[in-house]
Amino acid sequence: MADPDRLEDLIAIIDRALLSSGADDATFESDLASQLKAAKRVLQDELKGHFQRAEGQLGNWTDTIQPKGGR
């Protein structure tokens, strides 16, 4: 599991590469642009998965310390 900070840094780096190569421009379509976008998508999915797992763990933890019906 990659460190979320590292994933965020890499996404920002890919965004800058997309911008500087003109790949964000809708008229720029190439293999390179689609490869960059594919890498970004994979990293974003991984980051999203990381936060979903973290939320799940947080939910389990709050259930544990505050049982339903407790004071």
């Binding site: 890499l10 890919i14 490869q35 890498a39 994979v42 991984e46």
Partner: peptide, 23 residues
């Protein structure tokens, strides 16, 4: 590179290499 970029599919479709180029 993070392991998620070094899977068979991301290697094959060039996404891993392109991420390295961006870095």
């Amino acid at each position: 590179l993070p392991g998620v970029l070094l899977q068979s599919e991301t290697i094959r479709n060039g996404a891993a290499s392109m991420a390295e180029a961006a870095i």
